[in-house]
């Protein structure tokens, strides 16, 4: 066990710029924590490692930022002896992992941190005591690969704009393509399932058309929107705007990936609309136009309604639009 001492140290001697042990995401709002510390003090002392002339933060970055923000000159910390970097890495992970579930980005940072000191197999073997959950070697290696992707991946993970599953899909791609996809997901916000579909369709379109993902984005509604205004990246679009953009982009990809099928579906939608079916009648065409069986569903509550809709069906049988729809 590492000998830890509780010491009152000058805030100026803590090097907040050294984030080597940090697994949490950068915090943008520490006002509340700062006010709380001023009023009630620090409940749990931050953990620091004694280094050359400076203290390196192991756990408690936000607390120390808040102390500094509050203008306090000294803070009580738990101090680890110089040189115990492995112990510090373990502590950085376990302090967080046993107090709450780590986010995806934190888990990835934690794995990358521990891989500096041990291999994936050792981490897997001790995962329950370090992470409070089992982790297998394959998953650990995958997380390490995600960590090796461009930096923005962790930011997007922190913001919930990309899933681990989607990241896993990107891992095997070259760095440039990864960057392009990460840029794409910085512009939209969609579900994990849709992220996977977007990656698949975009990758396939690019392979078929021999273009890059960035070129595809340029030709998409995202670029149109970007050129309309001050640029989406870094802008403060609301969740709804980004979701709407995501849906637009999906529709763009579907149309481009499946042009004939999309066109046929749109055509049929128009033809069915032109039939002006009553609300109690529903016409379904064969799925993907592969089979031959059409379905007409009729709902009714009374005999009169039944007769009315039956008459409507008889009218439709003579309708040219209906005939052209069925005799495709």
């Amino acid at each position: 066990m590492t000998a830890i001492t509780l010491t009152d140290i000058p805030v100026s001697e803590i090097d907040l710029a050294d984030t080597g042990f940090r697994i949490t995401s950068p915090c943008h709002d520490i006002e509340h924590l700062s006010a709380s510390i001023c009023r009630y003090g620090i409940m749990v002392a931050p953990l620091v490692l004694y280094g050359q002339d400076k203290y390196i933060v192991v756990s408690g970055f936000r607390r120390i930022e808040a102390v500094r923000h509050a203008g306090l000159s000294r803070v009580t910390c738990r101090v680890m002896p110089a040189g115990d970097t492995l112990g510090a890495a373990m502590a950085a992970v376990t302090e967080n992992a046993f107090s709450r579930e780590l986010t995806s980005a934190e888990l990835i940072r934690a794995i990358a941190l521990l891989l500096r000191f041990m291999d994936a197999e050792s981490i897997a073997k001790n995962a329950t005591s370090i992470f409070n959950r089992p982790l297998n070697t394959g998953y650990i290696n995958t997380l390490a690969h995600i960590h090796a992707m461009p930096d923005s991946v962790l930011d997007l993970l922190d913001k919930g704009k990309i899933s681990i599953k989607a990241c896993k899909n990107l891992v095997s791609m070259d760095a440039e393509t990864q960057t392009e996809f990460l840029h794409l997901f910085s512009l939209i916000k969609v579900s994990s399932g849709l992220q996977m579909e977007i990656i698949t369709w975009a990758k396939e379109i690019c392979a078929l058309e021999k273009i890059s993902v960035s070129r595809l984005i340029q030709e998409s509604p995202l670029e149109t929107n970007e050129s309309d205004g001050p640029g989406l990246e870094g802008s403060d679009l609301g969740h709804r705007d980004m979701s709407a953009l995501g849906k637009q982009f999906k529709a763009f990809l579907v149309q481009r990936r499946f042009p004939a099928l999309t066109s046929a579906k749109n055509q049929v939608r128009k033809q069915i609309k032109a039939l002006e079916l009553d609300s109690g009648l529903q016409l379904a065409v064969p799925e993907n136009f592969e089979g031959l069986v059409y379905t007409m569903q009729m709902e009714f509550k009374t005999m009169d309604e039944f007769k009315t809709r039956l008459n409507r069906l008889a009218e439709i049988a003579d309708n040219r639009n209906f005939k052209s729809l069925v005799d495709r």
Partner: peptide, 14 residues
């Protein structure tokens, strides 16, 4: 431009 056929194989749009 594949769809899922009635035999669950992927087939070009008919």
């Amino acid at each position: 431009e594949f769809i899922t056929g009635l035999d669950n194989k992927m087939r070009y749009f008919k």
